[in-house]
Write a protein that binds this DNA or RNA. Sequence first.
DNA 1: AATATAAATGCTACCAAATTGCATTAATAA
DNA 2: TTATTAATGCAATTTGGTAGCATTTATATT
Lengths: 140, 140
Amino acid sequence: MNAETIPMDKNVEEMLRSHRLKRTSARIEILSLLLESSHTISYNDISEELGDNFDKSTVYRTLNSFEEKGIIHAVNDGSGGIKYAVTKQESEDAHVHFKCDSCEQTYCLPDTKIPRVHAPDGFIINRSSLLINGTCKYCS
Amino acid sequence: MNAETIPMDKNVEEMLRSHRLKRTSARIEILSLLLESSHTISYNDISEELGDNFDKSTVYRTLNSFEEKGIIHAVNDGSGGIKYAVTKQESEDAHVHFKCDSCEQTYCLPDTKIPRVHAPDGFIINRSSLLINGTCKYCS
DNA sequence: AATATAAATGCTACCAAATTGCATTAATAA
DNA sequence: TTATTAATGCAATTTGGTAGCATTTATATT
């Protein structure tokens, strides 16, 4: 039984349980959206998709909890709002994000790792984030 | 006569003239601040430094004009606000920015260039920005 | 030096993203 | 089934930034 055969909702509920998050409908729906999406999504994407089912503060708090638990990670693509993507096992080490100038979507590139750089003496590197702008494969 | 011996204000006025920007006191003071600073600065930094001498909209518009002219460049360090630094000749090609987790300042590392990465098939790279988080040399 | 004109400024109001306090409601453990 | 703890909804607030418009200022021209 591989991941494809596990129904999404079971998958979602198991993810919540394993992180000791109560399985509320807001969390289930928001996490489902995140899991289905091929690109990073913002508060606005969620609220458009889910209508007025949930309050703004609920959505933001949900995203914050997911991030704290490491279920998702924040992506700052310079759009003025924070976007999020599910953190998959394979992409846990720092991967590149790609913002398409055409469709404005931002993608995780889990197989494209951020190269180590050499900082000047005295600067101690903890982590890094690399954002690439260009044209994505769906727009090129 | 090298750069060190040119008085700052002359330097500033010449920069404005050469970009066909009127030499107003707001621009002179804000550009001076930017030139003096060792790290990127935000609207808030400017308004703290300059007090209420200039209106918020003036400061923001000034920063936008400078950026359009290429005098400064914007840095998005995830702090929620945009920061700016003067674009020096040597750092015109994409350099790394470093945000210190301790003092919260963000520095240009003009000698640390962003490595080229290989994006998946179909993704066309235009430009990239690399932000490093860690401890700066003044805090380490 | 006086003036014309184009641009910059300062208001005020506004917008968007995100957060907070608090009363209510719902999920889970006992 | 109930007690407890956490999540939600609501309204208000904060923060970063923009926009329209009347007034002022810098600069080029006479």
